[in-house]
Design a protein around this nucleic acid. Structure first.
Lengths: 264, 264
DNA sequence: GACAATACTTTACGGCGTAAGGAGATGTCG
DNA sequence: CGACATCTCCTTACGCCGTAAAGTATTGTC
């Protein structure tokens, strides 16, 4: 189930995101005991530690010694809390990437930071991207990669598509790692063990496998990939896909530069 | 919330997927009134029409005139039902792509079919890929793209990474379209309207936007993109990202071919 | 001291996956 | 035929979820 950003009142949501100071002078009633930041921090902690399915209003409240319902005085609903979490953690991506060696190493560094960022906060990959949160930190990340790519002199239109492609790719590759860890945690079975069990059964259930899927079998035999020491197979493989795929895309960008501007 | 494949008994799951004939001779008790295929078809219909959140055991049962619990005599749990749905629909991707004009048009055709396939069944993008379902149709899709890419003569290891990259990219790009439709349906607000409201509010909440994000503003002004007639903005843009991104990746593959085999 | 506004609580509703147990159908045996 | 095992399918129940509604306690202004 994908979560969608920005369902509620637009102004209220944006003022929360940009922390527009709320003038709350002499008004009756008890003082708020919590701040938005405390709530967002608690929610992020839960999502980081236990994953998105464990993130419930009741759980966040409990972590703060409050009932789940009490949060509704700070945040209109859960979906907007997720928006706030989303933008908040994007503040971690504030590196500026020097262009002294050109755009390519800078893009690589940016993508690498994004890659490990998603691994630190895998729940981000379950928040839809279509309706952007429009918070300060999300904009800053786009600004950063766009500034780097300006160096390629690609036309704006193509450049924006390259930005999209990079995000799709990094998110997809990061998802493999994130989900492999989630699956292992959720099922109590490591991916290696899972694969060992399955791959032993497949030949029994499908005796003519090699005849039906000759290319898969041939590639499996010819593959020289071996995981790094101490790193689970799937994660090591995903890291290699990230490296190779990113290089492939950047090679493609160079080809587009060499071709010069034209129809995208 | 991402769904994970294959939590249950491996043999039972695989026999269901590959439809290994169950010898159910003279056994007492009433005859089953349903078949697995009927259940899978009903579940796919719900997911296609109303999206993954609407897919509940009770809903599938209701569509078949049965209680939700009755399905548990056919399928061990919901997660395995999703596996069956996943593999079943992949049977639609059975085209074979001629190589007379080389690998590049064939990959483009394959990716294009995958792209529209995901749009026909957007819920597929919410099923995790880490633990593959290992059904006949899923294998067939991998076999197809692998066979095409064999034409590039890339080493097996690199070729497999390219396959991963293509899947990441196509899934990511397709997700944009799928989620944009889901968001519009779920919120009752078109993406255009949503954007109109937000973008009007941002300058009020963030008066110094242009100073803080100069590259974004400059790119927005220089962008020549205009949506196709009658196609929503976001979808048209996503289609262009798909075209441009795929071309970029394939250019990168050609560059890797030109470089010849080496460390991936 | 009266009153209004606010923070926070408890309770409740309709959804979910599925465990448990029971009803009725259908086969094999004596 | 009757007894019994086995099967499909049903109802009920549990503990989760987001959040609506209503109640209580606290704090300010008049």
């Amino acid at each position: 189930m994908v979560l969608f950003a920005g369902q509620g009142d637009a102004r209220r949501a944006l003022e929360l995101l940009w922390r527009t100071p709320v003038t709350r002078e002499k008004r009756p009633g008890p003082k708020p005991a919590l701040t938005i930041d405390e709530i967002v921090d608690a929610a992020v902690a839960i999502a980081d530690e236990e994953g998105m399915p464990a993130l419930s209003m009741r759980a966040v409240g409990q972590r703060l010694g409050r009932s789940g319902m009490s949060l509704y005085t700070y945040v209109p609903n859960k979906s907007e809390l997720v928006d706030l979490m989303y933008d908040h953690v994007h503040g971690e991506l504030n590196g500026d990437y020097g262009l002294d060696q050109g755009w390519r190493p800078a893009v690589r560094a940016w993508a690498g930071d994004l890659w490990s960022f998603y691994q630190r906060h895998p729940w981000l990959l379950q928040v839809s991207q279509v309706r952007p949160v429009l918070g300060p930190n999300e904009y800053a990340v786009v600004e950063t990669v766009a500034r780097i790519l300006t160096e390629t002199s690609l036309p704006a239109r193509t450049l924006l598509r390259v930005v999209g492609t990079l995000f799709h790719f990094v998110r997809g590759a990061a998802q493999t790692v994130a989900e492999s860890r989630q699956a292992a945690a959720a099922t109590g079975l490591s991916n290696e063990d899972w694969w060992a069990v399955r791959s032993a059964v497949v030949p029994e259930v499908v005796p003519d496998f090699a005849r039906r899927y000759p290319t898969i079998v041939a590639l499996g035999q010819a593959d020289t990939f071996r995981p790094e020491e101490g790193v689970p197979y799937l994660e090591s493989q995903a890291a290699e896909t990230f490296r190779v795929g990113l290089a492939t895309i950047l090679d493609g960008v160079e080809a587009a530069m060499a071709r010069g501007p034209g129809e995208p």
